[in-house]
Design a protein around this nucleic acid. Structure first.
Lengths: 256, 256
DNA sequence: AAATAATGGTTCAAATAATGAACCGACATC
DNA sequence: GATGTCGGTTCATTATTTGAACCATTATTT
């Protein structure tokens, strides 16, 4: 591994739970010599990729990363790109369509289109969706990094309804099915009487970045509706992924 | 410069305007050999810090940066906390409001709200602001660590306009005034015809962490406007500091 | 349509930077 | 006061980085 790779793998030791680490700790976790670790940290600190706490002497991720990430995001306008397609999908399905982006350990709802009818599923912008019990969550996990999947299924999995899946095996099976057919289905996993389909929106690296989902009252939803919405949601997700990544989207090689 | 520094300085060549660059271009701008540049890009690509467009072969900032930036922001929810207040301030002032965070030796613009009018001050996300010649810079220095202040005023202080202050004494005086009234004023220090007010956002240790500023065309700005915006910007900065730190914000004991 | 000058990408001996065992002083247990 | 940990440093040895010269393509220019 080159020096650059080593420096980056130091950065990757930081997680939400382990957001501040000491020198010896970093050396141990990375497997690099303490002197090497320190030299890398100094180089990273000089460019603002790492900050050091003045009192504890511990290291944390720096503001330089945020700056570059924002430059990237300025060019990578997820919301702007996706909203027109969310709107189209809402028109054709006449049901609630919502768009989510992954944040830390849940999906964050960043846009919603509601149909103009009284009996509908209501979703709010900013609402957080659990990963294991929503169509969006399963669709995301089906195309997420292994470590992300592991992290999301590690914690206690809340039970929301009698239909909520909490067995890791059952959840894995849902993910496999989602990978095969392209979209996930959640039958009242989060709320009684609500059935949803969702598809993952992929980043250029082939991993999921967010999801688009259609949620409807189960009472008026047939199996044919589900299949039709599934295809529509996959088409929308594909289109968003393509507009975001150009034709540069790498297909994710993945064990089924 | 070490290899890590070189790799990062490659990343820093990307801006909002220049978000995709070719190999030769990157080599030219960085001053590194083409082979070196390429080797660094390959290393960065392997870790997702850089992505390469499949067709144009051009390089751009990668998703790995966004991921790490999110981890940082999870412990440090500066943006999320501040953006609503930036937005409010933009609405009430009807002028450009920008939010900055300190990085290494300058302020980094991390969010901007522009008013819906043609004649306005334009600021880009990711833009770097010098410390001595902007309202934000002075507001930051007024509540920065002594060593930071010294470091920022040590280097050569660029002259941007006929109004740019470059005498350390004059700058110190601006800082004192900013401390007294709570906000700083920059009258065309960076660009002719632009007048700004800014206030520091404080971390839990009482030292500045970033700033919030209102920038407007001088031609339509009265002394009363400045005073009013000053109070508004101070209120916003206080509110952001409080939300970030809870009620355990230490008041900075400081020589006036 | 031929000539020219870009482009992205590769090679390998020479130059340079990275490495790590041993070391230091400071702090905390034991 | 002995022992273990911490963050940080040193310097001879070692391995990586470097860059001029080299392709093959793809625009430009004449």
């Amino acid at each position: 591994m080159g020096t650059v790779g080593k420096a980056i793998s130091l950065l990757e030791l930081f997680t939400v739970d382990q957001s501040e680490l000491g020198l010896s700790d970093l050396a141990r976790r990375s497997g690099f010599d303490k002197a090497t670790t320190r030299r890398l940290l100094v180089a990273l600190t000089a460019r603002g990729f790492i900050e050091q706490d003045a009192t504890t002497r511990h290291y944390r991720l720096g503001a330089g990363l945020s700056r570059l990430a924002r430059i990237r995001e300025a060019r990578f306008p997820f919301l702007q790109t996706a909203v027109p397609l969310v709107r189209d999908l809402a028109t054709t399905t006449a049901e609630t369509v919502h768009l989510s982006e992954f944040g830390i350990d849940r999906l964050v709802t960043i846009h919603v289109e509601h149909p103009a009818r009284a009996n509908r599923v209501n979703v709010d912008i900013g609402q957080l969706l659990p990963m294991h019990s929503t169509a969006s969550g399963i669709a995301y996990l089906a195309f997420a990094r292994d470590e992300t999947v592991k992290a999301c299924l590690a914690g206690p999995l809340d039970v929301f309804t009698a239909h909520t899946l909490t067995e890791p095996d059952a959840i894995s099976r849902s993910m496999s099915e989602a990978r095969e057919r392209g979209y996930s289905i959640s039958d009242q996993g989060l709320e009684e009487g609500v059935i949803s389909v969702a598809a993952a929106i992929l980043a250029a690296d082939g991993f999921a970045l967010g999801t688009i989902a259609v949620a409807a009252p189960k009472s008026r939803t047939t199996a044919a509706d589900i299949a039709q919405r599934g295809l529509a949601v996959v088409a929308a997700a594909r289109e968003i992924s393509m507009r975001l990544n150009g034709d540069n989207l790498q297909t994710l090689r993945r064990q089924a």
